[in-house]
């Protein structure tokens, strides 16, 4: 655990010393504040559209931070050759994968906490903070979803040579899952034969990231999610993240590193 935390600490340092995060945060804040200041029919009480836009920006920013940070970790170690002094220490490749995952996940969580803090500030500004319990649940579910995304990006970084290729593929896959995965059963039911079976297969195999998206509940002020489904969703994310990390470790341990 000590090794994992040490590896994670480097990733967190990297995130807050790079400019990407600040750019995204300032951009999110700026767009939200500009939209919040727009006068729609001289009504100052409208808040749901602002929640929607802020949460969308938070989702996009968090995804960008998580994917880009995770995708560059191991390739950057190899490219800058820092992997060699690192692996020359009593550190296994599995620990490198896990440490990088932990670092990106924790760093994304810190960034996410700041973004959700900003969301609360926006709510307070418009005198419509919404349910704090649901806000905390949204943060937690979002963070758990990012665990799957980060694990996916780390696996991708070991399969694809360029981080940009990996990031693009991750964005497409995650967006595709968020938009379509929940509807694959509907599509499968409408399609008989092997096509339908394939869709059912995908439906049960893909991680259902849309489970972790409770933005509509927040925007429209619905009650929080019951504890049972919340725990199940957490375990669901943990299982998928673990499977992806095992796959990443399996790929990495077979990869020769030539100095």
């Amino acid at each position: 655990m000590r090794t994992l935390l040490a590896l994670a600490w480097v990733v967190i340092k990297e995130l807050y010393r790079r400019k990407d995060f600040y750019v995204l945060f300032v951009l999110t804040a700026l767009i939200t504040l500009v939209l919040g200041s727009v006068n729609f029919f001289e009504d100052t009480l409208m808040v749901r559209y602002l929640r929607e836009v802020t949460l969308l920006l938070i989702w996009v920013s968090a995804l960008v931070i998580a994917v880009v940070t995770a995708a560059r970790q191991i390739p950057a170690e190899r490219e800058s050759r820092t992997i060699f002094p690192l692996l020359a220490k009593p550190v296994t490749r599995g620990q490198v994968v896990l440490g990088k995952f932990l670092g990106v996940w924790l760093a994304s969580g810190l960034a996410l906490a700041l973004f959700y803090g900003f969301y609360l500030v926006v709510g307070a500004w418009k005198a419509a903070s919404g349910s704090l319990a649901l806000g905390l649940q949204a943060f937690w579910l979002h963070w758990m979803m990012l665990a799957v995304v980060v694990a996916l990006a780390i696996l991708g970084s070991l399969l694809f040579s360029a981080p940009s290729v990996n990031s693009t593929i991750c964005f497409v896959v995650v967006t595709g899952i968020l938009l379509l995965a929940g509807h694959l059963n509907t599509l499968a039911a409408a399609q008989p034969g092997p096509g339908g079976a394939l869709m059912y297969g995908l439906y049960f195999a893909l991680p259902h990231l849309e489970l972790f998206d409770v933005r509509d509940l927040m925007i429209h002020e619905h009650p929080p999610v019951p504890l049972g489904p919340l725990v199940i969703a957490t375990l669901y994310a943990a299982v998928y993240a673990a499977l992806l990390l095992v796959a990443a470790w399996w790929v990495f341990r077979r990869k020769p590193l030539s100095t």
């Binding site: 029919f41 009504d43 009480l45 409208m46 808040v47 749901r48 559209y49 579910l141 929940g182 059963n185 439906y203 049960f204 259902h208 849309e210 489970l211 972790f212 998206d213 409770v214 509509d216 509940l217 429209h220 619905h222 999610v225 019951p226 489904p229 199940i232 969703a233 669901y236």
Partner: peptide
């Protein structure tokens, strides 16, 4: 999965009511 996902999305059909919410 469908059953679980319904806890995380809006499954109750309600309408905005009152000037403050309808303005949304």
């Amino acid at each position: 999965i469908d059953r679980l996902s319904r806890h995380f999305r809006v499954t109750e059909h309600t309408h905005l009511a009152g000037a403050q919410t309808e303005a949304e």
